[in-house]
Structures are given as structure tokens and as C-alpha cells.
Computed example of a mutant assay.
Amino acid sequence: MTLSIRSATPQDLPLIADLIRALADYEKLADAVRFDDAVLGAKLFGARPYAEVIIGELDGTAQGFALFFHNFSTFEGKPGIYLEDLFVRPEARGSGLGKALLARLAALAVERDCARLEWSVLDWNEPAIGFYKKLGARLMDEWTVMRVDGADLARLGAEPGVEGGKSA
């Protein structure tokens, strides 16, 4: 079995969309997938890419992916890599592909002088948590994820006195 990791190209957009939907099915979140393929393509491969994707293949067949982007640590004064999504198709699990995807991200983080590689995992996903711990990852129990989206995001962004990123 030949395992390979490669950077995604615009031609991979249908594959990426399929893998995202497969991940959502696995996480029991299929109803949360609302992206438009064309918009996703523009955000990944347009003039200002917001994220990157690597594709994991077994014997030339795509079986997984990792979607990631840079964040920044003010305490470290360096960028980091945030892994938004990692997914390996069920039939390819146990092949080493998930580890290879994470290893490639770790190598990119080192190449790019990043301070860290981090991600979130669902509390119920014990197989993934165990897998990540074996690779040296640790739970960040002291942190709680916060999110503002939808109507609340629009409302916050429309607060009086905020225009063009400058306070009144």
C-alpha cells in the first residue's frame, strides 16, 4: 500500500466538498453543512485564500483530508497552524493516513516557524482523543471555546461607533 500526502488544487474542490460532507455525517452534523461549493472554492483557492487543504491518498485514491489555516500566538510572537478538520474515510482508518496527515501538518508548522499546531475535538469522540494523545497531543481543559455567529455576529458587527475597524 502506497501512502501519499499532497496539497489540494482547485480541481480537488468536488473531492473536498465530498470529504467535508462525509466528516459531517460521521460527526452527526450533516444538517450543519451549509456551504456553497463555488464560495468554498473561492475561499480556498481565490485571490486571498483563507485556508489550505492537504489530501491523503492510499494507492492513488483520496481517502482523507486536513483543512487548516494560520492563527497567531501573541504570547509566543509567532504564527501557529489551526487544524479545522481532519477526516479519514472509515475504510482507510488504521492505515496510518491520519497520522501521516498530522505529521505533514507538524512538518509545515516547523517549516513555517510556527509555535504550535492545535485543533478541537468533540468530547464524545474517544477514538480520536486516544489517537491524538498517542501522538503527543494534550487536552486543553482550561480553555472553553466561544463562538458568535449568525444573527448575533451581524448584530455585534453593527454595534454603534464601529466603522471600518475604528472606534468612534
Rank of each mutant, 00 (worst) to 15 (best):
T2K: 13
L3M: 12
L3P: 08
L3C: 14
S4P: 04
I5M: 14
R6F: 03
T9I: 01
T9F: 01
P10I: 02
P10T: 02
P10L: 04
Q11G: 08
P14R: 03
L15K: 08
I16P: 15
I16F: 09
A17L: 03
A17W: 02
D18A: 04
D18Y: 00
I20T: 02
R21M: 01
A22M: 01
L23A: 01
A24K: 04
A24P: 03
D25K: 06
L29P: 02
D31N: 10
R34V: 13
F35Y: 03
D36K: 14
D36M: 14
D37R: 10
V39H: 12
V39D: 15
A42E: 13
K43I: 04
L44Q: 05
F45D: 05
F45T: 05
A47D: 10
A47G: 13
R48W: 12
P49M: 08
Y50F: 06
Y50Q: 08
A51P: 00
E52S: 05
E52N: 05
V53D: 01
I54H: 06
I55K: 00
E57T: 02
D59I: 00
D59P: 01
G60S: 00
A62P: 07
A62E: 05
Q63D: 00
A66C: 01
L67W: 00
F68K: 07
F68I: 04
F68A: 09
F69H: 13
N71M: 04
T74R: 08
F75C: 02
G77M: 10
G77F: 13
K78I: 07
P79I: 05
Y82W: 06
Y82A: 06
E84W: 02
D85C: 02
L86T: 02
L86W: 01
F87A: 02
R89I: 03
E91C: 12
A92M: 09
G94K: 07
G94F: 09
S95A: 14
L97Q: 12
L97K: 12
A100F: 10
A100Y: 09
A100Q: 10
A103S: 15
A106L: 13
A107R: 14
L108E: 06
A109D: 00
E111G: 06
D113M: 10
R116A: 14
L117K: 11
E118Q: 13
E118K: 06
W119M: 11
S120E: 12
S120W: 12
D123Y: 12
W124T: 05
W124H: 05
E126Y: 04
E126M: 07
P127V: 08
A128G: 11
I129V: 07
I129N: 05
G130A: 11
K133P: 07
K134I: 13
L135Y: 14
L135P: 12
L135E: 11
G136A: 10
A137S: 04
R138K: 14
R138D: 14
R138A: 14
M140T: 07
M140D: 08
D141V: 09
D141A: 10
E142P: 09
W143Q: 05
W143D: 04
T144G: 04
V145Y: 09
V145I: 11
M146I: 11
R147K: 14
R147G: 11
V148G: 07
V148I: 14
D149A: 13
D152A: 15
L153R: 01
L153A: 03
L156S: 09
L156F: 10
G157P: 09
G157I: 09
E159P: 09
P160S: 12
V162T: 03
V162L: 06
V162W: 03
G164N: 08
G165W: 02
G165V: 03
G165H: 01
